[in-house]
Amino acid sequence: RQAGRPDEAVTDLTAALTLNPEYAWAFAERGEAHRQTGRLEEAVADFDRALALSPDHAWALGSRGQAHRQAGRPDEAITDLTAALTLNPEYAWAFAERGEAHRQTGRLEEAVADFTAALTLDPA
């Protein structure tokens, strides 16, 4: 997936999950591969499964939030991204994603606050 071949990643991660259906990391990674290819509902389903197995997985929460935002569900995105930030208050990427979700809903003051927090944590 990180090499830019998300379809191959889905195949490989599905094989891994056949061997170990309780592998939370593999569900989260497969969810991200689905998200990268625009299969947002499959992504959310995989993130749901990863979080059922490992509820304190901030990255999976944030990534599910991103998938919700991309699917036009900014309120669900905000909920997930807020949960990710509760687990990791210095998660700059989650602040930026939540800012984008706030922007989608027209909550511009909240968006600016989140973008500012993201830039404060990671000015690059």
Rank of each mutant, 00 (worst) to 15 (best):
Q104L: 15
R69D: 11
S63N: 11
R64P: 09
A71I: 00
A101N: 04
R64W: 01
T120F: 04
L108C: 11
L108G: 04
A58P: 07
Q66D: 14
E8W: 00
Q36A: 07
H68L: 08
Q2E: 15
A118E: 07
R35V: 01
T105A: 12
A94N: 06
A28V: 01
A28L: 06
T37V: 15
A58L: 03
P6A: 04
P21S: 13
A111I: 10
W25G: 10
H34M: 02
R35F: 07
E100C: 12
D80W: 11
P89R: 03
L121T: 08
E41I: 02
A16G: 00
H57P: 00
A28F: 08
R103F: 06
D7H: 09
A67T: 10
P89E: 04
A117M: 12
R69L: 11
Y23F: 13
D7T: 10
A15M: 06
T18N: 13
T79M: 13
A84R: 06
G31K: 11
Q66F: 04
L61F: 09
E32V: 05
N88R: 15
F95R: 05
T11H: 04
R64Q: 08
R49D: 14
F95G: 06
A117N: 02
W25T: 14
E110S: 05
R107I: 00
E76V: 01
Q104A: 15
A96G: 15
A101P: 07
A58G: 09
F95N: 13
A77N: 03
R5D: 15
H34K: 06
F47S: 06
L108T: 03
E32D: 15
R107G: 10
L40I: 01
L53W: 00
T79S: 09
L17S: 09
R69H: 14
R64A: 02
P55R: 10
R69K: 11
N88P: 01
G106M: 13
T11K: 14
R69C: 14
Q66K: 10
G62T: 08
S54C: 13
D48R: 01
R30E: 11
A60P: 07
T116V: 02
G62V: 00
A24M: 00
A84N: 11
A52F: 01
A43V: 07
Q36T: 02
F27P: 07
Q36M: 14
G38H: 13
T105S: 12
Q104G: 05
R103D: 14
D122M: 12
